[in-house]
Design a binder for these strands. Structure first.
Ligand SMILES: [Mn+2]
Ligand SMILES: [Mn+2]
Ligand SMILES: [Mn+2]
Ligand SMILES: [Mn+2]
Lengths: 218, 218
DNA sequence: AAATAAAATTAGGCAAGACTAATTTTATTT
DNA sequence: AAATAAAATTAGTCTTGCCTAATTTTATTT
């Protein structure tokens, strides 16, 4: 049996792996979860014993085939619950992440599949992240951010990389949603701030960090 | 903050209180949860410190006003989730209890109320137990069992007192659901077995324990 | 009332999952 | 290459929630 904490670590490792494709270190995991590196080292031992990860000083942490499967299923449950909370219960997109963070740990052989069917087999969650299918496959993940757009370029928001309520509420305030069209008017060379036009409206300036948190399709 | 274990104890105490109205002892709690009495004594201390229960050698365990409120909310969540699992996800009534046992611990200020609304404010859960309203009030709880019916009497199943899948699957096999009409043909004085007719069909014999597990309305 | 049985409690222990502080290893500068 | 900084690891501690075994208290028989 895999515990709640183990599941959270697994999901975290999975995300780091997808996000960066880089070496996954204890420090990176600790930072991402807000835990102490010493605790991470403990958990690395546990997950290694359970054959869900491999750890090598040189290569860092890697998911085993089983670890990948388990992680994918947790992500599937998380994103399906997010769709449920938004579409069926009427939550806003900045409220659902934390609740899904708990719901994702409910274990039942058929729950995810039933929920998937009930929701009409959605491809993406409310933040634009692809929902893994029962077989582990999933739709395209976008990786280009608003910060990658060249000056003058036009793009469409397809996902958010940051799901904190601070960021999502800021987007709300700016009138940005999945699907919103944005034009990059100017890049301020001093600090890479971005001057943008949202749905053709008047110009607004946002930070580089902001730009790197919005995934777009050109 | 109240932990998952504390919530389970609280709900257990609440059920014992409703079921019997009798003195609630550490042994009774231990039995009901399948835990050791020593563990129960530990938890009694914790819940007392948090002012959710009072414990007196003479009177046994009693819920404080806050304890009652908390317990009622947990029960509310449990029963609402059961309705969801059955009606929206298509589970059978013998599969939902264990999943709801986990879902009931998801904490969010508005979740229960949103779920309630989404489900159309159901009065009873799939086992015939009344669902506490947001204000703590709830519909009538039935207390007469099939074992209380007098010979020759006709009654209607309104709830099950036992929600184990063994019992529920047995009911399924016998064709008994909430709403099913049962006539008590004969009571075997040797062991209080009951000869019954289900929806007017041929006679079947069931045990006293069975009779005491079915709540009915005359 | 004594003897016995049952229930409650205490004492001590264990595993999970976190922490801090100290140490060791590895990487980066100078 | 040595010095320094950063990262990883170890050692030891804490809380929660459970356990077993021993003891004490309470209830039931004889
Ligand atoms: Mn989680
Ligand atoms: Mn999401
Ligand atoms: Mn529970
Ligand atoms: Mn129920």
């Amino acid at each position: 049996m895999i515990t709640l904490s183990e599941e959270n670590y697994l999901k975290c490792i999975y995300r780091l792996w997808q996000d960066k494709g880089q070496k996954i270190t204890p420090t990176a995991i600790a930072e991402s979860l807000g835990n102490n590196p010493a605790s991470v080292v403990d958990m690395i031992r546990k997950l290694t014993d359970k054959q869900l990860i491999n750890y090598d000083k040189k290569k860092g942490v890697e998911l085993t085939t089983q670890g990948q499967k388990d992680a994918t299923l947790i992500v599937r449950r998380h994103r399906l619950w997010e769709v449920f909370l938004l579409e069926k219960l009427g939550y806003h997109w900045d409220e659902i992440h934390d609740i899904a963070e708990e719901l994702e740990h409910i274990k039942d052989a058929t729950l995810a599949d039933r929920l998937d069917k009930f929701l009409g087999f959605p491809e993406y969650d409310p933040h634009g992240d692809p929902i893994p299918k029962a077989n582990g496959k999933m739709a395209k993940r976008y990786s280009t951010t608003l910060a990658d757009v060249k000056t003058g370029g036009q793009c469409r928001v397809v996902a958010v990389k940051d799901t904190t309520s601070q960021f999502l509420q800021y987007l709300q305030k700016l009138g940005i949603n999945i699907g919103t069209k944005i034009q990059l008017i100017e890049r301020i060379s001093f600090d890479n701030s971005l001057v943008i036009s949202i749905d053709g409206a008047e110009h607004k300036t946002v930070s580089q960090k902001f730009g790197e948190s919005l995934l777009i399709d050109m």
